[in-house]
């Protein structure tokens, strides 16, 4: 019997609920560590793709941030369901891309599923942990509640295909933000396959946007963009952090670069998931109102 030729997948960007190619027409290749042959062509996101992603995120923000916490939790849980259903596809893809053992890839994907479920449960609870009613010394009802910070750029670390992305996406999303994620440069395929899961999990178009490509070609524009409220940097390059803060100062961006897990720690729930990660994606709003008749 003749061997069947495989249909190779084209990995495109994820912007505004669509999967466009890069407007630049540029691509880059991911090679198999075993065969050294190209595994796939991946869209090489450009400045303009980044601009389009931010536009889509801004457009999606009002309705996403206005959804009930319960609803956002349901949608995150739906993502977990769909990911569970399609986990084998992601595992196989990871093995092909990274050359790792099936078992390791499986562990990563199941961690991602469980993490989504964990954050789904936080959707209607973190407000009660981080919000306060403040006993002011006057007849006023005064309370402080977290609100989404807005359009958030997330620069994902390179070392894993999926778990850093999910670990940052979930708390940012559950807090009501809309996102522009810059995927792992080294392992970009899982991010785009995961985007397909997002696209089929009731996440409204534009709420999550994922760009693949050469990071240094995009992050400068992300830092400069005046309509990005916050950048969450998962990386240890001080020169990158310096650039993000310098450029981000133009619109007083919240540049968040707190300690992040390394290596196997990404799979460790004690190290890689926390309600305080949700906290890093919110603003606190305090409201005063007189108490009277």
């Amino acid at each position: 019997m003749q061997k069947r030729s495989e249909i190779l997948k084209t990995y495109k960007l994820f912007i505004g609920g669509q999967f466009p190619r890069s407007e630049s027409g540029h691509y880059f290749q991911v090679f198999s560590p075993k065969t050294k042959k190209p595994v796939a062509n991946v869209a090489r996101g450009s400045r303009k793709d980044l601009r389009d992603a931010v536009t889509a995120a801004r457009k999606a923000l009002p309705s996403w941030s206005a959804k009930t916490a319960y609803n956002r939790g349901q949608i995150l849980y739906r993502m977990a369901e769909v990911l569970e259903n399609r986990k084998e596809e992601l595992i196989v893809e990871m093995v092909k891309m990274t050359g790792c053992l099936h078992k390791k890839a499986e562990k990563e994907v199941t961690t991602c599923i469980d993490r989504l479920v964990w954050y789904a449960g936080w959707a209607d609870k973190y407000q009660q942990i981080f919000g306060t009613v403040n006993p002011v010394a006057a007849p006023y009802f005064n309370f402080t509640l977290p609100e989404p910070v807005g359009v958030v750029g997330i620069i994902v670390s390179d070392e894993w295909p999926l778990v850093p992305l999910v670990s940052k996406l979930a708390p940012a999303l559950v807090a009501g933000n809309t996102l522009v994620l810059i995927a792992s440069e080294k392992y970009p395929l899982s991010a785009i396959t995961f985007a397909e899961i997002i696209a089929t999990s009731d996440v409204p178009a534009g709420v999550v946007n994922i760009l693949t490509g050469i990071k240094k070609e995009m992050i400068g524009h992300l830092a400069k963009h005046m309509d990005v409220n916050s950048i969450n940097y998962t990386g240890s390059d001080v020169s990158v952090l310096k650039m993000l803060q310098e450029e981000g100062s133009a619109n007083v961006k919240r540049v968040i670069a707190h300690d992040y897990p390394k290596g196997e720690e990404w799979l460790n729930n004690a190290k890689a998931q926390s309600p305080y990660w949700i906290h890093s994606f919110v603003e606190m709003k305090t409201t005063w109102h007189p108490i009277g008749i």
Binding site: T132, N134, P135, V136, A137, A138, Y140, N142, T144, E283, M284, K285, T286, T287, W288, H289, P290
Partner: peptide, 18 residues
């Protein structure tokens, strides 16, 4: 905005985040 004064304005208190 970080502080909303509803039916009041320019109120401050050490217990109230600003």
């Amino acid at each position: 905005a970080g502080v909303i004064w509803a039916n009041t304005y320019n109120k401050f208190d050490p217990t109230s985040p600003f």
